[in-house]
Design a protein around this nucleic acid. Structure first.
Lengths: 186, 186
DNA sequence: TATTGTTATACTCTATAACTATA
DNA sequence: TATAGTTATAGAGTATAACAATA
């Protein structure tokens, strides 16, 4: 098996933070750390519920959900584009799903280079039980927020996302050197 | 290599959502989807900047950061506990880091079962350049939020985290069956 | 030539189980 | 017996590169 969604933030907030990084707004690092930690825990909760239905990875589940959502068989590269994975990875994921009898590779009627991915009845049955649980997780988790607070959260997150998309297109900026504390080893 | 942090939410929000899941507060699913998406993109941005300094995975970087943050060599199981990984996984990560000359296994002075992990000068040098970039990413990203908004975001996220911790200890709840739309296949 | 998908290869992260050495 | 760490094995997910078939 795998998964256990480690609660790691890739960010370390030391007590010496202000000394070491005098320029940084400490609040921004707290934002980042909390965002990553919360997302990890949410993912773990969703994963936990998903696996009560079937032992499928997130990627595998999403392939099924995408095909089912489309309402018709889809060619692999369409699914791969949505998942942002390469064609080689896609083939490997499809192999796993086919081995388990959850998808079928169907020949494309007109373009013989292509194939179409269709999902089996068992896959549909799994999705029928899995999707409500995933949505149920969101419902249970965010029950602690009022409607207004949900809206606020979504609005803030959307602005952060917009910013992230802009940054992703810029060149990677230089980092200031860290100021070593006196007595630090090295 | 690996990494590219796919922008996947594990959640599909269809237009037919309300029909299919009449009980669900749609807002909660939007919260979850946005939270996961934002976190993925933030992780990608941090990763992008981290890799301009050294081609290290998140886990590998964190091992170095944890040891450096402690200010002294640490036994593997202490680091593994923080990262929530097993001892076998820890050994493998340490092997990789040692092969690259970033850590050393030092014998424990009193307990000969134990070893201590120390980081090399090169690792320190990497951290000196890497940590500011990671914090710089947070700073640049959350510059779109005011101080007040940062505080609000952190507060909301903390409440969600508290909720998630409580849920993680409960038994997995049953999911309602999804209501199939007329004309749906299957 | 370009597109679609597969194969081959390799690497990281992860887990479990059996094992060794030490306490 | 319990603890610390390693080894062996396995598997998922990912990537790249070379390839075949088709358009």
């Amino acid at each position: 098996m795998q998964d256990s969604v480690a609660d790691r933030s890739a960010i370390v907030v030391n007590d010496d933070f202000e000394d070491e990084f005098p320029d940084a707004r400490r609040a921004t690092t707290l934002c980042a750390a909390n965002l990553l930690r919360t997302a990890n825990r949410l993912l773990a909760e969703i994963d936990r519920r998903r696996r009560t239905v079937a032992d499928l990875s997130a990627s595998a589940s999403e392939i099924l959900a995408i095909v089912e959502g489309a309402g018709e068989p889809l060619p692999p590269h369409v699914i791969a584009d949505r998942l942002l994975i390469t064609s080689g990875t896609m083939t490997s994921l499809l192999d796993t799903l086919e081995r388990r009898g959850l998808i079928r590779r169907v020949t494309h009627p007109t373009d013989r280079r292509k194939i179409l991915i269709d999902i089996s009845d068992e896959a549909r049955s799994i999705l029928d039980r899995m999707l409500p649980r995933i949505h149920g997780a969101s419902r249970d988790v965010f029950a602690v927020l009022s409607d207004t607070e949900c809206t606020t959260l979504v609005e803030l997150l959307e602005r952060v996302q917009t910013r992230l998309q802009a940054l992703a297109q810029e060149a990677t900026p230089e980092g200031d050197e860290r100021r070593r504390r006196p007595g630090d080893r090295g």
